[in-house]
Write a protein that binds this DNA or RNA. Structure first.
Lengths: 220, 220
DNA sequence: CGGTCTATTGACTGGCGTCAAGCACCGTGG
DNA sequence: CCACGGTGCTTGACGCCAGTCAATAGACCG
């Protein structure tokens, strides 16, 4: 979520696939995405990994690191990505002085949680095809709300392997399901550019309901 | 997480399976579990459902309802369950007056998020057996920290169907995997009572690492 | 005593993973 | 200019994990 930051921020640039914050470390700063995409990922002994969240510009990726002390996940760049680091100390000060800002940070964490719950349901109870369709819908709605996407098109520069890590699927299966959506005329996805040909159908297929994203303007 | 509440609370009792808060509604109170287990669940058109979180006594189940306005999930009782409802208004006042308490609520939400991330990884990248083993470990550690469990035993009165809704599996498969853990001598599970026979082995099997639960005492 | 709920088991099916090969595209160096 | 290795996408063959369907048995209850 977009948090208006008049905070002192240290900008940094990362190339596709680079690690922004490492699992298991203790941080003194939190970062927010200013351009491109970042993701949270957890890895297993086998070398497999699972991406547990995707962040778009404006998202405060790891407010978590401040509260959790030890990172339970890494933050990586999906495609080229710019971020800004803000010292925990400053966030702490700001939240103590302004209950309103504290509330906004808390809200951000809460919406994050709502998205994660939806992902859990996608992983547990939806088919691969539905899950993929759901993700495509979610990203469009989030990016549109952030003012970065329109006309049912957006850039999302990830490999199919990374997509597999998001969906909990193998590369091969991602490839097949993607082709099914393509040949059904629902989606185009080429060179990191996604175009939704039939949003309603895609939403119906995946039972996508954007309520959980809390994008409607309401007093908080 | 245990939030010390000197807040005005309206107590309520729910029977196994009863709905405490309904998906899609707007609430004016948040609830915390005082005894028994509650769960968050999302349901699909097909009638299937996914449980996205399990809450133990001391957990502030849906602080969410305050921030999110419209519930993105239901809260249901797993087994008999006692809860306390606290008006949002009171929580709001308290957090505005005490940055420290606001911080504790925020921390609670953050840890909640860490647990959800782990569940995502379990669903996406672990086998059914590992996932089940991981859940058994997690619940024990959380209950022990809450002072409700010891000696590797705890009560968890859920049906195998509910367990399936937690793990994203069918009843039949839950039954089979449970039997495998039993016959491997790792776990006993009868009549809603879980006994871990070999915690280390179970943790190794499922790659369980309790760090994400943030139970180590650290200044916040 | 029949009805409902839960646990259990077997037979069969199917979605998704694994393995492997073949392309297309790229940047590099000879 | 072309050989090359690397990376990512695509496709086919095959196998296994988990779902579905169905039936049985026990516990509880009205």
């Amino acid at each position: 979520m977009r948090i208006i930051g008049e905070l002192p921020a240290r900008p940094a640039v990362f190339a596709a696939g680079e690690e922004i914050v490492r699992e298991g470390t203790r941080q003194k700063e939190s970062c927010l995405v200013t351009s491109g995409f970042a993701a949270r990922s957890q890895s297993l002994r086998s070398g497999e990994r699972q991406i547990t969240a995707v962040h778009v510009p404006g998202d405060f990726v790891d407010l978590h690191s401040m509260m959790l002390k030890v990172m339970d996940h890494s933050v990586v760049a999906l495609g080229p990505c710019k971020v800004a680091f803000v010292p925990h100390e400053r966030i702490r000060e700001v939240t103590e002085q302004s209950p309103h800002l504290a509330r906004l940070f808390w809200l951000s964490t809460t919406i994050d949680g709502a998205i994660q719950r939806t992902w859990i349901t996608c992983l547990g109870r939806r088919s691969a095809e539905q899950h993929l369709a759901h993700l495509i819908c979610e990203l469009y709605v989030r990016l549109e709300a952030a003012g970065i996407a329109s006309d049912f098109t957006y850039g999302f520069p990830v490999t199919q392997a990374e997509l597999g890590d998001v969906l909990g699927l193998s590369v091969v299966h991602v490839n097949r399901k993607l082709q099914e959506l393509r040949s059904a005329g629902l989606v185009e996805w080429r060179d990191g550019k996604v175009t939704i040909r039939d949003f309603d159908q895609l939403a119906r297929l995946s039972e996508f309901d954007p309520t959980y994203l809390s994008l409607r303007r309401e007093a908080r």
